[in-house]
Each structure stands twice: as C-alpha cells, then as structure tokens.
Design a protein around this nucleic acid. Structure first.
Lengths: 131, 131
DNA sequence: AAGCGTTATTCTCAAACAAGAATAACGGAG
DNA sequence: CTCCGTTATTCTTGTTTGAGAATAACGCTT
C-alpha cells in the first residue's frame, strides 16, 4: 500500500536572519519542563553545544536573554526561561498551532480524493500522446 | 529597533518521504516557462545535476513522470511538463499561496505592536540584564 | 576535599549536501 | 560531418552542518 499524502509546515520568524523556529520552540519548552538545558538536549537528542549556540544566537538577534542558568548547587544547577523567553515561546507556539490547523484544512481542500483521481486520470491519458 | 519581524513558511508535501516542496515548484515553473531544464537551472542558480536528481527522486515517489525531455534537434532539445507535472505544480502553487496568505494574517494577529511592546516591558522588568 | 551534575565554551571530526566537471548521446543547422 | 545546445548520468570536490570530546568553573552533598 502506498504512503498517504501528508503536510509538513515549517514556520520561521525572521528578524533579518532567522530569529525563531520549531527547534527553539522544542528546546525552550523542554527547558521549562525539565529545568535544565542538559536534560532538554538529552530529551530531544540534540548536542548540548548546538543547543547552547542556538540559544546564544537567538538571544543576540532579539537583544535580550531567553534563558538564565546556574552552574553548581543542589542538583548541579539548571536553566530556566526568562519572562521574555516564556512569552516568546508561548506566543510562537500558539501562532504555529493556529497556522498548522488552518493549513491542514486548506490541504484537505486542495489535495482531496477528487484531485488525486484527476491526477491519476491525467497519467492514464498520457499513453502515446505528442503534446 | 533594527530589522522588522517577518514570517517565512515552508510548505512541504510528504508521501512517506518528502514529495513536493518550494524548490520543485520553482524548478517546474521555470521549466514550463523556459522549455528547458538547462535554462531553468541557470535562472534559479541551481546545478543541473542537482535539479535532475531532484526530479528523478520526486518522480520515483509519485510513480509518474513530471517532465519529458528531448536531446538534440533544433535548439539542442528541451524539457516540458507532463500533464501530471503541470497539474501537481499548479495545485501545489495555489495551495501554498493560500496557506501563506492566511498565515500572514495570523502572524499579524500574534505579533502585533501590542505584543512586541509587552515583550519589551517584560525585558525592562528584568533587573540587571547584563547579558 | 572529593564527587556529582550542571552551565559555559571551544575544538575536532564525520556526514550530508550541493556545485561543477566530465562524459556520452542526440539531432538539426551551418 | 562537425558544431551547438540540450538531456542524461556519474564522479569529484568543497562547504556546511551537527555531534561529541575536551576543558573549566561552580556550588551543594557526602
């Protein structure tokens, strides 16, 4: 059996350069959930160094910190979101969700069974034609 | 404030693997316009070999040809879209356009001036932001 | 003081990706 | 019958990407 048709959307916010995308959403969400950049990286299977660079770069672009971290202490330390980090994460998340929902509906409209069978027919019609 | 905030959407159709995206749209559109894969590649500054591989791979996934080409002849030959190729290109193009339009509206709703100033305030509320 | 788990930072190495060269075949035009 | 511009195909090379190691500092806990 053939694979079903599916849609994948990537929603990125730019500020000249790329300023926020799905990777940051996952990362910051996991930092908030786990309280640690280290654990967040493990969860999403991303190298710590990469995550750290991503965050630094994003912070540079926005001009404010998204996370704050402490090394040492009870559990070795940890990271948490700044208010701006939390706000941005939340807003982007909701935005992306809404866009995806709408896109999914639009997708079903354009790539319906009807269209697919039309595609199929076009294929059959093509037998020995010299367009 | 420096650069304005902007949105970039990538809309990809999957059939298990990636089956159609913005690159194919541009490529096929240019083939239709120029009548040649060679010229299309030049126009969009893409290596011929890469474009050719992309097309082959996409055709494999869909199970039908998207382009047909002739080597030799009056102008050296050329390529054109099959009916399915044309249909798919058109449909994806319209779909993508509609999704982008809607997403743009949603973007303006979520990343309004109001939200941006809220973000700014959150930043000010944060004490010594010695980043 | 040693150990632990973390943040922070830089470096090295391999894999993925894309560009461009090289080669062959084709068929009309000069 | 060679030249031209194309399709078609593979190979080499350089760039970009990301993973993981290495190193240091930190502050609880034992």
């Amino acid at each position: 059996m053939q694979d079903e048709l599916g849609l994948k959307l990537t929603v990125r916010i730019y500020k000249g350069e790329k300023a926020f995308g799905p990777g940051m959403l996952t990362l910051l969400t996991l930092i908030e959930k786990t309280g640690s950049l280290h654990k967040a990286c493990e969860s999403m299977d991303m190298a710590y160094s990469k995550a750290w660079k991503m965050i630094k770069e994003t912070e540079r672009l926005w001009g404010f910190a998204l996370t704050v971290g402490d090394a040492g202490g009870k559990n070795g330390g940890g990271s948490r979101l700044t208010p701006e980090g939390r706000l941005l994460t939340e807003q982007y998340g909701q935005f992306m969700e809404e866009v995806k929902e709408k896109a999914e509906l639009t997708f079903n409209k354009y790539f319906s069974e009807e269209f697919l069978s039309k595609l199929d027919k076009a294929g059959k019609a093509q037998k020995g034609s010299g367009n």
